[in-house]
């Protein structure tokens, strides 16, 4: 990452941590209050492609980690700066008990389905999101299914009939 941007980030936001680049990958950890401002600052400084919003359930630390992955759309072909190669992983943590956050749609339009998915799979509410309706799932779940305390195998054995084991009847060799 270019140093001026780094300086800008560290001076503008309290408690922001920028890890040194590791093979085109920079990890930034920011406070949850400043995430939207960091996103728009990064966007205005060239990192204008939101590739992914992800969520990790760190159950032992009682927090959800929201992950925004940004990269830069290049301006012209054949001119590659390190910037276009760089992927920024912007992370923030929210309390697991209070799974609420703010939507990033005003800054990146394509955040919409990602946030909808995280809402559905992790049960995190995004304020300002226009439609937090189910995206993939058909059933209702007490625990959102991608949380670590959702036991897939137990759920399957509780809800569905067991898979009949083929070959139980006769042992044919």
């Amino acid at each position: 990452m270019k140093d001026p941007l780094k300086d800008k980030l560290t001076s503008a936001f309290d408690g922001i941590q920028i890890q040194p680049a590791d093979r085109n990958q920079i990890s930034i950890t920011a406070n949850k209050e400043s995430i939207l401002s960091v996103l728009s600052l990064l966007k205005s400084n060239g990192y204008n492609h939101l590739a992914l919003i992800s969520c990790v359930d760190w159950i032992e630390e009682k927090r959800f980690e929201l992950v925004y992955i940004l990269s830069a759309y290049m301006e012209k072909d054949k001119h590659f700066t390190d910037m276009e190669k760089t992927n920024i992983i912007l992370k923030t943590s929210i309390y697991r008990e209070k799974p609420q956050f703010i939507s990033a749609i005003p800054i990146f339009e394509n955040a919409e389905p990602y946030e909808r998915e995280i809402h559905e799979l992790y049960g995190i509410h995004f304020e300002g999101h226009p439609r937090l309706t189910p995206l993939f799932l058909e059933r209702e779940y007490k625990t959102p299914p991608f949380r670590k305390d959702f036991d897939t195998r137990k759920y399957v054995s509780d809800v569905f009939d067991p898979i009949p084991f083929v070959g139980k009847k006769a042992d044919k060799r």
Partner: peptide, 8 residues
Amino acid sequence: DTDTFTFL
């Protein structure tokens, strides 16, 4: 016969 789908 589904049993034939398991074999040694």
